[in-house]
Each structure stands twice: as C-alpha cells, then as structure tokens.
Amino acid sequence: MLELKTPQEIEAMGVTGAFIAELLDDLAGRAKPGVNLLDLEERARDLVAERGAESCYWDYAPSFGRGPFRNVICLSVNDAVLHGLPHDYALRDADLLTMDIAVSIDGWVADSARSVVVGVPRPEDERLIECTERALEAGIAAALSGNRLGDISAAIGAVATDYGYGINTEFGGHGLGRTMHEDPHVPNTGRAGRGLRLQPGLTLALEPWFACGTDKIIYDDDGWTIRSADGSRTAHSEHTIAITDSAPLVLTRRDHNAVPAL
C-alpha cells in the first residue's frame, strides 16, 4: 500500500532530512587518512543521540542480513557499496568511502547516502561518484506528479549507461515515511512511461549505486557488507524526496525548499 503524506508530514520529514545532511557533512569533514571507521560510527551515534533521533539501522534484521545490525550508519570502503558494517579499519589515502544513514525524528524517517574520496582522489573514482550524483539528479528531475515510476528509473539508468557502468537491480530505492522501507521499490533502471503513476504526497528514497567493472555483487562473511563481484570500486548517492504538484522536494538537503501546497 502507498501512504501519501500531507504537507505537514512532509515538512516533518524535511526536519529529519536536514539533520541527516548536517550529519553527513560532519562525517565527510572527518573522513581523513588515519581515521578509523569505528570513530566515524561513534561520532554518528553521538550526533543521533544529541538530536534525540532514533536510528533506523539499529536492530534492523532483514532476510539478507546475518543477525540484527548493531550500528547507526553503514560505512562502505572501495569495492564495498551497500550495508558496510563499521569495523576496525583506518582509512587510507585515496580510499573511496560511502556513508549511508537513515534516522527517525518525531516518528518521521529520512534516508541519505554520500560517497567521498579520502585524501587525494583518483580521477576514475571522481568520475564514478559524479555518475551516481548525476544519476540521482536525473531521477529527481523525473519525479514529477503525473509521471510514472519508470520515468525515474529510466532517467537514472540512462546516466549509468552513458558513463558505461553496469546496473544491478537487486537493490534500489524505496518508499519511506513512518518506516525506513515502504512501497514502492524504485529500480535503478527501467522503462519510461511504465509503472506506478506519481502522486503528490508520495515520498521516496532514490539511490543510484554503481561499480566500475560489474553489475554483480558478493557478500562479506559478516553477512551485511555488499561488494562488487570483481573487486572494482563502487559509489552510492541517495536522497529522500517528496512528490508535489510542482517540482519535487529534496528533503535530505540542508537547503530544501519550503513545502508547497499539495
């Protein structure tokens, strides 16, 4: 079932989204050579607790995981792209770090991910991150009332194809609101003009993620961390958005616009 949100509920999700944007800014500034992933996890926990937010990841136990997740943020390095389990690892120069977090404030969830290069970047990593960011913006631009869900997926996939990256369809975007995962699923590729018609009040997390060399994935022994099957570098960008009767709102930017009437 789809749950359409009121303008007031979207505004509440925007409060959560702005906090997430600030948290990711903070962690991105701390992600330097020598910094341990566990230090970033601890900082994220402190910020979540200080804000009075609730982690959507803590005790998360989906069918693909191994036991409940006992961290507040996913930290994935280099060939790891999704659900990276924070562990004792000191970041190195030129590491590609993806940070993904979802929290709830006053019962309303937002979800966002960002990839950054630690230290001196490699051009191929900058290109990969740029692709995920451009794909995300293309998906957002297609998220107009009256369009179809396939228009979003097709826009995301077209950017990846232009860059020459493969597209995995096992994991993608999703609805969210009162909980972290709601209907519908939003694949990172699809056919324009197909699928659910977008309506004002629909809130979605769009999250293009790609690997340089493959669209296949493997799991670490921890049961959570997902990597590219060929060991190639990966990147992931995600925003929470709301469909309105005009332009979509990006709720996980600090500067997201005031909520218009739906």
Rank of each mutant, 00 (worst) to 15 (best):
R197V: 15
S232T: 15
A235M: 02
D220S: 11
D220K: 10
G231P: 12
C212R: 08
R227L: 03
G193K: 10
G213I: 01
Q199L: 13
V186I: 15
T214I: 05
G201D: 05
G190L: 01
G213R: 06
A235K: 00
Q199Y: 03
P187H: 03
H239N: 08
T234Q: 13
T189A: 14
L196Q: 11
Y219D: 05
L206D: 06
F210G: 12
T214F: 01
D215I: 01
A235G: 02
D220G: 09
L204A: 02
L204D: 02
P200L: 06
F210Y: 15
R233G: 13
L196N: 08
R194H: 02
W209S: 04
G195L: 05
F210A: 09
W224S: 00
D215Y: 06
A229H: 02
T189Q: 14
T203W: 05
T240M: 01
G223W: 08
G213F: 06
D221K: 07
S232F: 10
T234H: 07
E207N: 14
W224N: 03
C212Y: 04
R197N: 09
E238P: 00
C212I: 15
A192Y: 01
T214A: 09
D222F: 04
D215S: 14
T240C: 07
R191N: 03
D221S: 10
G193Q: 13
A192C: 02
G201Y: 08
L204M: 09
